[in-house]
Lab assay of single mutants.
Amino acid sequence: RYTFRTRGPEQMKRVVEWARRQNLSYRVEVHGDEYIIHAE
């Protein structure tokens, strides 16, 4: 189980790509310009 905090969509997309390659399920929360990605 991982939690990532990123700023801006570019970093968020990179984390999502990584999670997909690992076959993890993930969800993204948006708080202003901060993205929180939960993957497991």
Rank of each mutant, 00 (worst) to 15 (best):
R1P: 11
R1A: 08
R1V: 12
R1W: 12
R1I: 12
R1N: 07
R1Y: 12
R1S: 12
R1G: 12
R1K: 13
R1T: 10
Y2I: 10
Y2K: 04
Y2N: 03
Y2F: 12
Y2R: 05
Y2P: 03
Y2D: 02
Y2M: 08
Y2G: 02
T3G: 02
T3N: 03
T3E: 08
T3M: 10
T3H: 11
T3V: 13
T3L: 10
T3W: 08
T3R: 07
F4Q: 00
F4V: 05
F4C: 15
F4Y: 05
F4N: 00
F4K: 02
F4E: 02
R5G: 02
R5Q: 05
R5Y: 14
R5T: 09
R5K: 10
R5P: 02
R5W: 09
R5I: 14
R5S: 05
R5F: 11
R5D: 02
T6Q: 02
T6V: 15
T6S: 04
T6N: 01
T6G: 06
T6I: 14
T6D: 00
T6E: 03
T6H: 01
T6L: 10
R7Q: 09
R7I: 09
R7Y: 10
R7V: 10
R7W: 08
R7D: 07
R7K: 13
R7P: 04
R7A: 08
R7C: 07
R7T: 11
G8Q: 14
G8H: 15
G8F: 15
G8S: 15
G8W: 14
G8P: 00
G8M: 13
G8C: 15
G8K: 14
G8T: 14
P9F: 15
P9T: 13
P9I: 15
P9N: 08
P9W: 15
P9V: 15
P9E: 15
P9D: 12
P9L: 15
P9G: 08
E10Y: 07
E10W: 06
E10G: 06
E10S: 08
E10M: 06
E10H: 06
E10D: 11
E10Q: 08
E10I: 09
Q11N: 12
Q11S: 10
Q11L: 09
Q11A: 14
Q11H: 10
Q11P: 05
Q11W: 06
Q11D: 09
Q11E: 13
Q11R: 07
M12F: 09
M12D: 00
M12N: 01
M12Y: 07
M12V: 08
M12T: 06
M12L: 11
M12A: 10
M12H: 02
M12I: 06
K13V: 06
K13C: 14
K13G: 07
K13W: 13
K13L: 14
K13A: 13
K13Q: 13
K13R: 12
K13F: 09
K13E: 11
K13M: 14
R14Y: 07
R14A: 12
R14S: 07
R14F: 08
R14P: 01
R14I: 13
V15A: 05
V15R: 02
V15F: 13
V15L: 10
V15E: 00
V15I: 14
V15M: 05
V15N: 00
V16Q: 02
V16N: 01
V16H: 01
V16A: 03
V16K: 03
V16W: 02
V16D: 02
V16T: 06
E17V: 04
E17N: 09
E17F: 05
E17C: 09
E17T: 04
W18T: 01
W18S: 01
W18G: 01
W18D: 01
W18M: 02
W18Q: 01
W18Y: 03
W18V: 01
W18L: 02
W18A: 01
A19Y: 04
A19T: 03
A19R: 00
A19V: 13
A19I: 14
A19M: 12
A19S: 02
A19D: 00
A19E: 01
A19W: 02
A19F: 11
A19P: 00
R20S: 07
R20I: 15
R20G: 04
R20K: 14
R20E: 13
R20F: 06
R20V: 13
R20Q: 13
R21Y: 07
R21Q: 12
R21D: 10
R21T: 12
R21I: 09
R21P: 00
R21N: 11
R21G: 10
R21E: 11
R21H: 09
Q22D: 02
Q22F: 12
Q22R: 11
Q22I: 07
Q22W: 13
Q22G: 06
Q22T: 06
Q22A: 09
Q22H: 15
N23D: 06
N23M: 08
N23H: 12
N23P: 01
N23F: 08
N23L: 06
N23R: 09
N23Y: 05
N23W: 04
N23T: 03
N23Q: 08
N23G: 15
L24N: 00
L24C: 05
L24I: 06
L24A: 03
L24S: 00
L24V: 04
S25W: 13
S25N: 12
S25Q: 12
S25R: 12
S25D: 09
S25G: 06
S25H: 14
S25F: 12
S25Y: 12
S25I: 13
Y26W: 12
Y26S: 02
Y26D: 01
Y26Q: 00
Y26R: 00
Y26H: 03
Y26V: 14
R27S: 13
R27Q: 10
R27D: 05
R27G: 03
R27F: 12
V28W: 04
V28A: 01
V28Q: 01
V28T: 03
V28D: 00
V28S: 00
V28I: 12
V28F: 03
E29T: 09
E29Q: 07
E29H: 06
E29N: 04
E29I: 11
E29L: 07
E29A: 05
E29F: 10
E29V: 09
E29D: 05
V30L: 10
V30G: 04
V30E: 10
V30N: 06
V30W: 07
V30M: 11
V30R: 13
V30D: 04
V30Q: 13
H31E: 14
H31D: 13
H31Y: 12
H31F: 12
H31L: 12
H31M: 12
H31K: 11
H31N: 12
G32Y: 04
G32A: 05
G32P: 03
G32C: 04
G32V: 04
G32K: 05
G32S: 04
D33P: 05
D33W: 05
D33Q: 06
D33H: 07
D33T: 09
D33V: 07
D33M: 07
D33E: 09
D33N: 10
D33F: 07
D33K: 08
E34W: 15
E34A: 07
E34T: 12
E34M: 13
E34Y: 14
E34C: 15
E34L: 14
Y35V: 05
Y35S: 03
Y35C: 09
Y35A: 05
Y35I: 07
Y35G: 01
Y35K: 02
Y35M: 05
I36W: 10
I36N: 01
I36H: 04
I36E: 03
I36S: 01
I36D: 01
I37Q: 01
I37V: 07
I37M: 03
I37P: 00
I37D: 00
I37S: 00
I37Y: 01
H38N: 05
H38E: 10
H38A: 03
H38S: 08
H38L: 11
H38G: 01
H38D: 03
H38T: 14
H38Q: 06
H38M: 11
A39I: 15
A39D: 00
A39F: 15
A39E: 01
A39M: 15
A39L: 15
A39G: 02
A39K: 01
E40H: 11
E40N: 09
E40Q: 12
E40L: 09
E40V: 12
E40P: 04
E40R: 08
E40M: 12
E40S: 12
E40A: 11
E40K: 08
E40T: 11
E40G: 13
E40I: 11
